[in-house]
Simulated scan of single mutants.
Amino acid sequence: MARKIKISAGVLNIRLHPHTPERYAEFLHDVYKLKKPVKLRGDRHAMISLLNRSEADDGIFTGVITTFLDIDFDGTWFNTAELKEATDEQVSKVTIPENLHPNSAQFYFQFDANKHKLYFQTYSSGKVLSEKSALSLFQGLSDDLGISQKYGDAKITVIQSKEGLAKIFAIPVIKEIKITIVKPNADIFADDFEAQIEAHLAGAHSKKLTISYEAESGSSVTPTDEIKAISAVALENGNVKVNGRDDSGAVKRSTDDHPMQYQDKYDPDAMSENQAFRSIIPQGNAEGD
């Protein structure tokens, strides 16, 4: 049996209005059709390089995200043998086509149009696609003028873990809890809560709500069941930040530092990397997060 290989994944929550599986499917297809590279950091870029619609009847779309280096051919080149800048004559001998990019890596993804969740592989053959990078890619695609004119302001957030929320609420002394909720879809709140939040944000022409709990002098904020319930919503639609004190002194914690992660190891002789990826993410009615 071959040595088992690490496989891991994260998840984004994508929210559009109106809120229908058909609109989400169309959105994903349109951002794919852009064939647009998005800058992640430095020279690293990413794009959706493959979209598979064979499971579209079930609201499932799979594909590949490819990351690569985008070289500035007009920039200064360095000759490591001579330890000085390369001459124009030396640079003129470089004949890499502009549509070829080095140091590429591929990561599988799966989009559930029914739950508007996009699961993406975060580790492949030693290369990493972080949650922040995946967010940058899809936010960059949704900010394209043609996309934003058709779909409006897409709200995209990294889903964070319940374990991370429990950790930040376990700080011995909590001076402040700040909960931010980005304007949600109508399917995530109980009827009364959803209606009030939606109406309040719409009436104020606002896209997010921040709720802050500050401790009385000499006291610590208690995360009540109500606070925990609101915070659970923020894990998929915003974040929760806590300021307080522990044995080391003043601390600041955020659920942003605890993204939801799925991970395991697989035998490459028994299954493909794509099969391993799909085996660790929620399927059907299993939420998993």
Rank of each mutant, 00 (worst) to 15 (best):
T62C: 02
Q283N: 11
K155M: 11
D143Y: 15
Q196I: 15
A199I: 06
F73H: 12
P102Y: 02
M271F: 07
A2C: 05
A113S: 12
T255K: 06
V158E: 06
I280P: 03
F120L: 01
D74K: 09
R53H: 05
K162D: 12
K175G: 14
R44N: 09
D30V: 01
G10R: 06
E226V: 15
R253W: 00
L201D: 14
S161H: 11
Y213Q: 08
G218T: 07
L135D: 11
S272Y: 01
K127Y: 14
F107G: 04
D269V: 06
I5D: 05
R253D: 03
I60T: 03
Q261L: 08
A286N: 15
Q106K: 12
S92V: 05
Y123I: 07
A186L: 10
I71G: 04
I197G: 03
S219L: 09
W77P: 04
K228I: 03
K175M: 04
R53A: 00
D289A: 08
K93I: 10
S161I: 11
S220N: 05
G249K: 08
E287L: 11
S124R: 09
V38I: 14
Q196G: 15
S125P: 00
H101G: 08
Q139T: 13
E226M: 11
E98Y: 13
S125E: 09
Y262V: 08
Q261R: 14
K228A: 13
Q283V: 06
F120A: 03
E26A: 09
A113K: 03
Q121Y: 00
Y266L: 05
G59M: 09
G218M: 03
S133P: 03
E216I: 07
H205P: 07
Q160V: 13
V38S: 06
D192G: 11
S142C: 09
P172I: 11
S133I: 01
H205D: 15
T95W: 13
A232K: 13
A25G: 12
T67L: 04
D267Y: 10
S206Q: 13
I71D: 02
L28Q: 02
S142W: 01
D225I: 12
H200L: 15
Q149N: 14
V242K: 09
